Amino acid sequence: YTAFGDLEVFLHGLGLEHMTDLLKERDITLRHLLTMREDEFTKNGITSKDQQKILAALKELQ
Rank of each mutant, 00 (worst) to 15 (best):
L14W: 09
M36P: 00
I54S: 05
A56R: 11
H12P: 03
F10S: 06
A56T: 12
G5F: 08
L55K: 15
E17H: 15
T35L: 05
T42C: 10
L14S: 12
D39I: 05
E38A: 08
G45M: 03
L11I: 02
L14R: 07
E40D: 12
I28F: 05
L22W: 09
Q51I: 04
L33W: 02
L61C: 12
L23M: 09
E38V: 08
E40W: 03
I46Q: 01
K24T: 05
F10H: 02
A57H: 13
L33S: 01
K43W: 06
Q52T: 10
E60D: 12
L55H: 07
T47Q: 11
Y1L: 10
K49W: 02
L61F: 12
H18V: 03
L33Y: 00
E17G: 15
F41H: 02
M36F: 07
R26W: 00
V9C: 13
D50L: 00
L34T: 13
I28P: 01
D21P: 14
L34R: 11
T42E: 12
L23Q: 01
K53F: 03
T29A: 03
D6W: 02
L7Y: 00
K49N: 11
L7S: 03
A56E: 10
E17D: 07
Q51S: 13
G13Y: 05
A57E: 08
Y1E: 15
T35P: 01
A56K: 14
L33P: 01
G13H: 11
D39A: 07
Q51F: 07
L23N: 02
D21H: 13
L30T: 06
G5C: 10
D27N: 14
S48A: 14
E8S: 08
T29N: 08
L55T: 13
I46N: 02
T42N: 09
K24A: 07
L33F: 07
I46S: 02
G5P: 15
L30R: 02
I46W: 04
E60R: 13
H32W: 01
D21F: 04
F41G: 03
G45D: 04
R37H: 11
D27G: 15
H32L: 05
I46P: 04
F4D: 15
L34S: 13
G13I: 03
V9W: 10
H32G: 09
N44S: 09
